[in-house]
Design a protein around this nucleic acid. Structure first.
Lengths: 200, 200
DNA sequence: ACCTGAACACCGTTCAAGT
DNA sequence: ACCTGAACACCGTTCAAGT
């Protein structure tokens, strides 16, 4: 065995168990109370000390990122949705559906848009939420480029812009907007990014 | 004097002094630390007990609303800006400038967009921030209607929608977006609300 | 190596005691 | 009538003591 090689030791059984309990409890609390939920209460209900939570997940963002990754329901739903979307023939429709799928994912927990938006623009490259953000941004970029080469989206638009827009819509929604307002905003947005016919 | 008449007694001198000290200190703390700043620290630095702050301003929103109202600089600047804007001949330009003016006002304190957005959509009609929100919304409505009758803005748009949009931009900005992203989003938005020529 | 939970320094809020 | 500040119930975070 090479001396420089990383040793990936299998974690102790209780460590694995604790981590799973924390994730499971945190997920429930995030779903019920939003991203601002008490971490003390999470540790307590998981039957662990606050210190244990803190070492497993040094920041709220780290816990949030881990919970998001472990959330099978949402990830699978998103992947399934993405598969459906990729089947669509109309590149315009594809983009619209993808924006809705993102918006719904960002509404998984109330208040999730805030740390996501912060992570998307963070100076610190080690924000744990950067990973999901970057995935969403590059996926959006793919769809935007496809729609652009089909002539449906203005060339000045980037995937990043529409990621920010979808995040904003989710933010407005989590602040209690009604569906009519949201729909008008979505329409507003769509008319903004769609290619318009130049005046002759 | 009628028995049912409201007696508006002049407040005691120390009460007036305390209120002024709280507002002045709170303003400084909001400016420096954003809307989430410690209210305890505000009371302490104003030389008062936390209970005094709490009776003058029962919630953070109440304090925030009072500080906004007392912020001469910003209000005056906004009024002056509005006067300038009203002089413009182009109704399209007017609306665009107004949206920028709102956006800047919403950036007075970091994080101000959050309570404003909440207040704009609150069920509770007694949220103290509803007053500034309603002022902004109806002003936006006025500008939108003017632009619409000049044929510059789609008729499906309401002032409320563009208020939400300006609030979102300020929110994105307060999360550290760079100016290029913001500009692309503003352009995106403007192409969305502008009247487009129907295909022949 | 990992967990534990007491301890610390903070919050916002209340309320009995003062003036 | 208004102010005061101790008291309360919460935070998140750290770290010495355990296993």
């Amino acid at each position: 065995m090479n001396a420089g090689e990383q040793r990936v030791r299998k974690p102790r059984a209780d460590v694995q168990r604790n981590r799973a309990a924390l994730l499971e409890t945190a997920q429930r609390h995030f779903l019920r109370n939003g991203v601002g939920t008490s971490l003390d209460a999470v540790a307590r209900e998981a039957g662990l000390g606050p210190g244990t939570l803190y070492r497993h997940f040094p920041t709220r963002e780290a816990l949030l990122a881990a919970v998001l990754q472990s959330l099978q329901t949402c990830s699978e739903e998103l992947v399934a949705r993405q598969a459906e979307i990729d089947q669509l023939s109309d590149a315009d429709e594809v983009l619209e559906q993808w924006l809705r799928a993102m918006e719904e994912y960002f509404s998984t927990f109330s208040g999730l848009s805030d740390p996501l938006m912060a992570a998307a623009q963070a100076q610190a490259p080690d924000d744990p939420l950067r990973i999901p953000c970057d995935i969403f941004i590059s996926a959006t970029d793919k769809y935007v480029k496809a729609a652009q080469s089909a002539g449906h989206v203005r060339t000045s638009i980037r995937g990043y812009d529409l990621f920010l827009a979808a995040c904003s819509i989710a933010w407005i929604k989590s602040n209690g907007a009604n569906e009519q307002s949201l729909d008008r905003l979505r329409t507003l947005l769509a008319s903004g990014y769609r290619e318009r016919d130049e005046k002759a």
